[in-house]
């Protein structure tokens, strides 16, 4: 099976469930899809995948979460894994946070909730293409 993964982080289970089916529907078995309900869990997943020699290509993160906000999480991710494409998916994020993520996390895209499925897929696809380049 593939050694490349897409990680989604959101405190809302309903979001993660719907993302999971959307992802697998479009990208099938080309990638692994991992889901974390908090930033803390996300780091666990990152560690696990790293142990399994699985490369994380894209992280899609919510902005408003308990413990840590999405832009801060993505900045940290970018500092440790600069190659990972970062995407914000949020019902509400202020401009300053998005700008912060753009500058310090090389934010690939911000997708507002409720998102359009095609937009999401396009963003992920363009992100994947970015990696290929």
């Amino acid at each position: 099976m593939t050694n490349q993964a897409i990680l989604c982080v959101d405190d809302e289970r309903i979001i993660l469930l719907s993302l999971r089916d959307q992802m697998s529907k479009h990208f099938g078995e080309h990638y692994r899809y991992e889901f974390a309900e908090s930033v803390e869990e996300a780091w666990e997943v990152v560690e696990d995948l790293s142990l399994d020699q699985i490369q994380i290509l894209i992280i899609v993160s919510d902005w408003l979460m308990p413990g840590m906000r999405g832009d801060e999480f993505l900045i940290e991710v970018h500092q440790r894994f600069p190659k990972i494409i970062t995407v914000l998916l949020s019902g509400q994020a202020d401009e300053a946070a998005i700008e912060n993520a753009r500058q310090h996390a090389s934010l690939h895209a911000y997708i507002p909730k409720p998102w359009d499925e095609a937009t999401l897929i396009d963003v992920i696809r363009s992100g994947l293409e970015k990696i290929d380049e």
């Binding site: 469930l17 719907s18 089916d21 509400q92």
Partner: peptide, 21 residues
């Protein structure tokens, strides 16, 4: 409203995605 937007948009996003799914 800023926070509520998120609150409302979250289920809306889930609904939209789930319907597609």
């Amino acid at each position: 409203v800023a926070g509520i937007a998120h609150e409302v948009n979250t289920p809306l996003g889930a609904i939209r995605a789930s319907i597609g799914n």
